[in-house]
């Protein structure tokens, strides 16, 4: 079962939830899709480390073949091409590697070159296989890295935890596309509700079964919980605002491996996730 963990903004506890759920399972695969700032590996400190470079295709125009018809310039919806003083300029950082210009060129003036944009790292931490996507600083989109991370996991272990990037943009859509269940992590504030609503709208659009984990819970009213009741979203777990958990986490320790209370808490959450995710119908349409 593939379980994606999302939140509308950073710092709500996606990595806390994904790392601990992956660790509490008998055997699992943890995939860090937060390629702009992957941090799951800081907790797992994976061994048997290996890595693979990821590249995208960038068009190069042959000046001698280019007739200056500008069909490619007009076609490019990303405006990655300009034709200045009889010469085509390709803006590599704007190009989305769609290949349209190459297909369209009547003179076949384009060829492609590989442009490295990051890497995928592999390792093992006890019962967890760890995969980490890393996007090089300054690159426009981590989507090709996420595609690579998620394409080879057909024969993975029973539980696959996908730690998503924050927000609800393309890169998150790519991360949850094949997920069987989505966990939305929410903070107990009005701001938290706004961010929760962003990812809630997204998983509804993708018709994914989903549930909410309320993180940093304190005594008193929880606007995020109220939102879940109003929208009839299942709350699958509550994590207290606890200094012991905060200390473990800020020391890059995995709570379920250090603390029985949190081992039990995440075990029970995983049980709910497993039940919810194995339903064939959409539980929260």
């Amino acid at each position: 079962m593939k379980v994606a963990v999302l939140s509308g903004k950073g710092g709500t506890g996606k990595t806390l939830v994904s790392v601990n759920l992956a660790s509490v399972a008998k055997e699992s695969l943890y995939i860090d899709c937060d390629v702009e700032e992957p941090n799951g590996h800081l907790f797992f400190k994976p061994k048997n480390y290996a890595s693979e470079s990821i590249a995208v295709k960038i068009p190069i125009s042959d000046e001698k073949l280019c007739s200056g018809c500008r069909k490619c310039v007009e076609f490019c919806k990303f405006n990655a091409l300009a034709f200045i003083i009889n010469k085509l300029i390709v803006f590599e950082n704007v190009c989305h590697s769609c290949g349209g210009c190459i297909l369209l060129c009547p003179e076949h003036a384009f060829r492609e070159k590989d442009k490295p944009i990051g890497q995928v790292q592999y390792g093992v931490s006890e019962n967890v296989t760890v995969m980490t996507g890393v996007l090089n600083p300054g690159e426009l989109s981590g989507v090709p890295i996420i595609k690579k991370l998620l394409q080879d996991i057909v024969n993975g272990p029973e539980l696959i935890m996908i730690d998503c990037p924050p927000g609800s943009a393309c890169i998150v859509m790519e991360s949850i596309k094949d997920a069987d269940y989505c966990i939305l992590v929410a903070e107990p504030t009005l701001f938290g509700v706004h961010n929760l609503n962003l990812v809630y709208e997204l998983v509804k659009l993708f018709k994914k079964p989903h549930g909410v984990i309320l993180n940093k819970c304190v005594e008193g009213e929880n606007p995020a919980e109220k939102f879940c009741i109003e929208k009839d979203i299942k709350v699958i777990g509550q994590i207290p605002f606890d200094s012991a958990l905060g200390t473990l986490n800020s020391n890059a320790q995995i709570s379920v491996r250090e603390n029985k209370k949190y081992h039990d808490l995440f075990s029970s959450i995983l049980q709910v996730v497993t039940q919810e995710g194995s339903h064939e119908t959409v539980t929260n349409p």
Partner: peptide, 11 residues
Amino acid sequence: SQGGAGIKAAQ
């Protein structure tokens, strides 16, 4: 434009 507005405008 979604992106690359500066490039298109400059063109």
